[in-house]
Amino acid sequence: MLFDWSFALEILPILAQAAVITIEATLIGFVLALLLGLALALARMSRNPFISFPAAGFIEFIRSTPLLIQIFFLYFVFPKFGIVLPALVAGILALGLHYSTYCAEVYRAGLENVPRGQWEAATALNLAPMATFRDIILPQAIPPIIPALANYLVALFKETPLLSAIAVLELMQTAKIIGSDTFRYLEPITLVGLFFLVMSLVSAALIRQGEAWLRRRRS
């Protein structure tokens, strides 16, 4: 059975619509991961063990268990408390939560790489700790870790097909529906694969360029 180009062309608009959902989920999920990740990293680095230990345990727990179950958990558990979340929202929450633990470790590495002297210098200038962190430490910690964070953006993007498990109409689910309706899986699933491949290759190239740019900027 050969690849049917006219069929592929026919389903392309439907898939393009679904791709919008995929990209939406990716971007919102990643913003969530970035914010939650920073909070987790700070909690993890806290000198108070009652904050740092649970944070470390939470990070370890989320990182060691499957995203798919976390998606199911969030999707099925909220209605128990009377909150009905649309599948897409539950899925985005799970993606953001899962990748926040990866981002937290990246932030931690970035923050730990800022020399202690920077804190001391800021203290000597009588800057408040909050201001020091926001104006002195973060601007130094973030640029070097952008490539690592970007890699997790791509990783998160590649996990969005998992949302099909709770019937979010993103790319994979749409492809599956087309498949079961027409009994032709070849074109939709192959197109979805190609979409991910092209996006990954493009972002990998962009990340490499970004890394080179960062290296040049530093030297």
Partner: peptide, 23 residues
């Protein structure tokens, strides 16, 4: 390496499971 890293694991599983029978 590029194909398997560039597409998602679930897409690969579905491809092997649903598409390969077409061949």
């Amino acid at each position: 390496v590029e194909i398997f890293r560039g597409t998602s694991a679930l897409v690969q599983l579905f491809w092997l499971y649903f598409v390969l029978p077409h061949f």
